[in-house]
Design a protein around this nucleic acid. Sequence first.
DNA 1: GCATAAGCGAGACGGTACGTCGAGTCTTACT
DNA 2: AGTAAGACTCGACGTACCGTCTCGCTTATGC
Lengths: 216, 216, 216, 216
Amino acid sequence: MSAATVTTVPATVRATVPVGEGATVARRGRPRDARCDEAILHATLEMLNEGGAGSVSIDGVAARAGVGKATIYRRWSSKEALLLEAMGTDTRALESPDLGSLRADLEAYFWALLDRLKANPNTDLLPHLIEAACYDAEVRNSLDEYVSSRQKPLRVILRRAQQRGEMAANVDLKVIVDVLVGPLFYRRLLTGDRLDRAYVNKLLDIVLSPALLLVP
Amino acid sequence: MSAATVTTVPATVRATVPVGEGATVARRGRPRDARCDEAILHATLEMLNEGGAGSVSIDGVAARAGVGKATIYRRWSSKEALLLEAMGTDTRALESPDLGSLRADLEAYFWALLDRLKANPNTDLLPHLIEAACYDAEVRNSLDEYVSSRQKPLRVILRRAQQRGEMAANVDLKVIVDVLVGPLFYRRLLTGDRLDRAYVNKLLDIVLSPALLLVP
Amino acid sequence: MSAATVTTVPATVRATVPVGEGATVARRGRPRDARCDEAILHATLEMLNEGGAGSVSIDGVAARAGVGKATIYRRWSSKEALLLEAMGTDTRALESPDLGSLRADLEAYFWALLDRLKANPNTDLLPHLIEAACYDAEVRNSLDEYVSSRQKPLRVILRRAQQRGEMAANVDLKVIVDVLVGPLFYRRLLTGDRLDRAYVNKLLDIVLSPALLLVP
Amino acid sequence: MSAATVTTVPATVRATVPVGEGATVARRGRPRDARCDEAILHATLEMLNEGGAGSVSIDGVAARAGVGKATIYRRWSSKEALLLEAMGTDTRALESPDLGSLRADLEAYFWALLDRLKANPNTDLLPHLIEAACYDAEVRNSLDEYVSSRQKPLRVILRRAQQRGEMAANVDLKVIVDVLVGPLFYRRLLTGDRLDRAYVNKLLDIVLSPALLLVP
DNA sequence: GCATAAGCGAGACGGTACGTCGAGTCTTACT
DNA sequence: AGTAAGACTCGACGTACCGTCTCGCTTATGC
């Protein structure tokens, strides 16, 4: 599971040394200074919280972190790669609650998600990254991985519901996930409408209730 | 009705002259050259199709349109305002089909939407505009208006279904809209998964069918 | 003669607009702001006097002059072109004294030259420009022109001496100039030995006196 | 004679180990690898001939020589120190021909000098070193020493001429040297005019001939 | 008819950020 | 200790846009 956390931000964005498989590789040269990573990410997050993604510049991060620009570019190939990893800092995988019923599990999941969003309001990088992903394949990949890591607990929940018999076994989980998660992103990115527990409840009412549609 | 089309891109982005109410005002000075508007928008769309929103620059548009930069800024307050209007060129309101059943109407609506998306693949400005809307209130407003104009036919369809008795009257239409539209945007912006008629069908199956969930 | 002063730093280094021949060209667009030229050159000279050619950077000049970097690059194609022109500021052509005798004229010329050198000790750009001329043809040309403009008064003096019959008419003036000027540059650039009136006197003694060499 | 070659580039540039006087000191640790010296100098000269002093970078030299940068800095205190020594490789002292007459000796000396210059046209480091000497005292010293080592044979020739009675004994040799050598450097560094035997002849005609100036 | 006002192409202007490069120092593990 | 590798700070480079601002000119209205 620690592995899961790590893979949240995949190797693709990290301009990592092509580290050999075996642990015996014994890389040569001066090793990267971990304190630099830390300082850079810290500075990035600070600036992110102060002014959003638009106010983060490589120059600025370098200055604040007390680090040369080259040191940043040695680690991340672009501003977006950096943002992605900075964001990843907060991407501790969400848990997959197991409360016995689909509805309860989903509620728990979404509530946790809402809390996560509320925690760092300015740090909403998604708009920036979505834009960046259009031009940068690396960001595209990382974003995909981020998304799928976010979906993972949801899939666990749904699969469990299927096993419990709460949900049809032949449903395409992918689509269900879209239906559950899509509305939230839609509000967050496009309409800006409120995202709170009341909304989650309504949403689940609609998606889960067979009574929604009048039976003719 | 023509007004409806126009308001798709609201006055906010247009740095319009505070045009007097009566038609008799007859503003003084040399009138704006309509061919400029045309040339600018044309150049913008061209560049948009060639390299996406990132490759559009005011300098570039001005050069290609054979126009001074001031002539652009006289009409649009920022690069995003211009993009928004260029996009609006294609934002002829979608129709609200009335085929007798909710399912059929929704299918028709979504198919038209899919066609629209397929038509100009590179011109997908949404990512750029979502990003811009974070920093620019004008863009925010215009985006909202764009979104709501897109939703309008959907709401018409749903309301009709309620009147027909196909759908419960007390359902919050807003949420239904989210559930119907959110998944599409989610795929388009985040997962990049295929958007085709098959997907629309699955989506409608899930959202519309009361039999989807097993009744315990 | 005012022309002479101007041509000291030739058009080559100036990234000038390809101004048409006739005065009627009526250049379009916003004209260059002469105050920028002034501010840039002033800042350059200041930094030059503070720390020599090595301490001048485009960034620094731009900052001190309160000017964008592009504004500098619009006028000069490189740091050296700028230095060259800044140096040219001080390149009021030396005069050609006419005191009646070759010796007296040369003494007057060299004394003026020494004064000029003493005036701005830190501003000795020659080493830097000589180096730059190796890689930059423009600088090469400008340097040549600078050199020849410095030599001009000397040539006048020598020609006058020939006319007066003080000097053989068939001597290659170019070589004489080398012999007179070369030693000074040699000291200035390479040996660093003192350059004062005493030295000039010794130099002239050797070059001018037929009694220097014992007649066999 | 090997000693002569070595002193051409003085100890100052070499960041030499403070080697003890006695040969018995027997320094501890791994001794320096002489092949490194060789490889570094070789790489330096290669790059020098390919693109002049401007194209030599420590990183580049290290890479081409297959050597760590530290290994270079352990031996030379700066890029210029390295260049200086690389140049020194070619600074086998010029000989002092003794052909019986001042004129013949000088001709022989200058011809040898011309050959030396022609041999490696791209490797003309002088401009670079003169520039560097402005900011770096070590380079300054080394350059001085280089210059004086070049002058040495000339001084021998002149002294011999004085002893032979060909030249007045009370002439300041330093100035004569300036007059003989200055013009060559002046052409080489500033005017770029041709340097060939014809020029040397003219030069000697002027400097040596008492008939140059008409006797009034 | 002729001033007044605005539009227009061109392009200069102050800024800000970009990504790259080089110098000289420092830190590994290996020899 | 020396060595190869390479990370580190610092600072400059030249470029690209942004949005604003002059220019000289053109084109309309309105007195």
